[in-house]
Amino acid sequence: MTPTRRQDTAVTADDGARLWASRSGRGTPGTTPLVLCHGGPGLWDMFDDMAGMLNDRATVVRWDQRGCGRSEPCAGPWTSGRFVADLDAVRRHFALERIALLGHSWGASLALNYALAHPERVAALIYVSGTGIGPDADWHGAYEANLLARLGEAPQRLARWRELPEASRERAVLQWSTEFVDRERAIEHAEHMADPWFPVNSPCNKALNAEARQTASTPALHSACQALELPVVVVDGERDIRPRSAVDSLVRALPQVRRVTLANAGHLPWVEDPDGFRDAVMMAMTAAR
């Protein structure tokens, strides 16, 4: 029987890098296991709450990406192809033939890239709070303006954010507080994201973001998405500070896609609309059978 308690383990990638991973939940017969891909790049798994709301319906596997969080420090390489291979090592470690794959933010791009590379191993894709397959110009300028506007609601927070070192925990908490619609609880939610706290992997972040800028909006990427014959559920928080219109090009390209927009949620919709988020994930899990 699939375990209900969380079991942490180390996964060894094909180049010897060791990755933290964890399995929890109780999958019923015929239920596809669910693998989660966290955001960043350069951050770590923050999906305790998400896994908790899904553990009664599926086996849930989480992992920290290469050189990040609880995974072993390493020197890379920081490429999407390498991270796709690491994700496949996690799948093999847990002896999962086919998976439902959920990616959040940068992790949504990683999950999409994995599905494009290995569609036979993915039963369904859940694309949460991603930024689509177009150029950064589709969203990044508006994101920066919205970030500063939300920080500016409390001028002392904006001033403090500007003076702090880029990789500090306090600065991250202030920045992450902009991701929530409920402004009274925004700092509380952001503090929860930062517990536990690990050093941000800045080289990883810079390299993968640079790669993403080069590969976005290419004809090859659009063609690959048009040929992806598996069910995809796109989940948006309507009040994410990244314009949701950035995802439109991906939705247009995918042949089997449903979009769920949660009206009173930001970038982490499972925090602010857990029932709506769970329903969206269960929709995808049902399609994966």
Rank of each mutant, 00 (worst) to 15 (best):
M1S: 10
M1R: 11
M1D: 08
Q7H: 14
D8Y: 04
D8P: 12
T9H: 08
V11T: 00
D14R: 13
A17M: 06
R26T: 14
T32C: 13
D48F: 05
D49N: 03
D49T: 14
M50Q: 06
M53G: 06
N55W: 00
A58D: 02
V61D: 02
G67V: 11
C68E: 08
R70M: 05
P73Y: 01
T79S: 15
T79M: 10
D86N: 08
D86A: 06
R92W: 00
H93L: 08
F94V: 02
L102R: 01
A111R: 07
A117T: 15
P119Q: 10
E120I: 01
A124Q: 05
I126F: 02
G132Y: 07
G134K: 09
D138P: 07
W139N: 13
Y143C: 11
Y143F: 15
L147A: 04
L148R: 15
Q156V: 04
R160M: 08
L164P: 01
P165K: 09
P165E: 12
P165N: 04
S168D: 11
S168E: 05
A172E: 10
A172Y: 09
Q175C: 02
W176K: 11
W176H: 14
T178F: 03
F180K: 13
R183Y: 03
A186Y: 02
I187K: 03
E188S: 11
H189R: 14
A190Y: 02
A190T: 05
H192L: 07
M193S: 07
M193I: 11
D195V: 11
F198D: 08
V200S: 11
A210P: 01
E211Y: 06
E211K: 13
R213C: 00
T215S: 13
T215V: 15
T215P: 06
A216C: 03
A216S: 14
S217A: 15
T218Q: 04
L221R: 15
L221N: 12
S223G: 13
Q226T: 08
Q226Y: 00
L228M: 03
L230K: 06
P231Q: 01
V232Y: 11
V233Q: 09
S245V: 13
D248L: 09
L250G: 10
R252S: 14
L254M: 05
R258G: 02
R259E: 09
A263S: 15
N264T: 07
G266L: 01
G266A: 07
H267T: 03
H267E: 10
H267G: 05
H267M: 10
H267F: 06
P269E: 01
W270Q: 13
G276V: 12
F277P: 08
R278V: 10
V281P: 12
M283Y: 03
T286A: 14
A288Q: 12
